[in-house]
Nucleic acid binder design. Structure first.
Lengths: 138, 138
DNA sequence: ATTGATATTGAAAATCAATTTCAATAAAAA
DNA sequence: TTTTTATTGAAATTGATTTTCAATATCAAT
């Protein structure tokens, strides 16, 4: 998905297009790494120095609401965000450089059914994340 | 694992046995729900009213270090802890009441191998968590 | 038992990210 | 243009976590 389409989507949902938003959207969308709000702030300020940290939080909130970005959980903290893959996808994270890859491969139906049976739980959602080292960091 | 063996383990690792620690350890170990430090504080204070919040943080830190408890990641925040299962286990969380069940069932080898091949990543670790409603909360 | 070294304590202060408040400003509609 | 109102950044506030510190409790060595 292109940057402009994220902006269009924001607009279609009744939000205005501003320089602050543009800078945040471009930053998050261009990144292949999970970024914390503070990291987004530092990077986006290079594009638009007047940017305030508050606007970063507010824009991330809206992007998450529109499912354009998703929260990334890591062993130490879970306040990082990455552009959301389309459809149901899982994450593969490089533990060294933080690069994120998406993958599909949902063969978990059999597993979840078995667990549901055994535990009596009604299962609604699942998370699958892999951690490792990317080609460059090995 | 019994409460006393956690305390023994703390002692064997050079930590002293105190009332504050006893109260925190008992609270965390008796719980089938993921608890935040504040929840642990409130519950443990019933056993030992002089307890300070700082000691809760410090004890949780040590228990995590000894792999007796593990951090639980949830869609909204990941500052809750639960007694660690023994061996490699996955979590099933009730989204309503917060109850935690452990399950095994590691049929992910084939999947991770395929992903490693495709992406060039060297995969080291994986997370699998299921979310749903327990029998009581349905 | 008593003592001494020191790990641990809780209170208070400090830190840090995240949220709220607010008057000024900018975007989009009229 | 003019008007409406969403959005802004700065500052204040919140709330969780961490640090500091003198007092205390634990445990090893007598």
């Amino acid at each position: 998905m292109t940057t402009s389409s994220w902006l269009t989507l924001l607009q279609e949902n009744g939000y205005r297009l501003t320089e602050a938003r543009r800078a945040v959207v471009e930053t998050v969308q261009d990144s292949t790494h999970a970024l914390t709000p503070l990291q987004v702030f530092d990077m986006a300020r290079k594009k638009y120095p007047a940017l305030g940290l508050v606007s970063v939080y507010r824009t991330l909130e809206k992007l998450e609401e529109l499912h354009l970005i998703q929260r990334v959980h890591q062993p130490h903290g879970c306040q990082a965000f990455i552009s959301a893959g389309s459809g149901h996808q899982h994450l593969l994270l490089c533990q060294n450089c933080g690069q994120v890859e998406f993958f599909e491969g949902d063969d978990l139906e059999a597993l979840t059914n078995a667990i549901a049976q055994r535990t009596g739980y009604q299962i609604q959602e699942h998370w699958l994340q892999l951690f490792g080292l990317c080609r460059n960091c090995q």
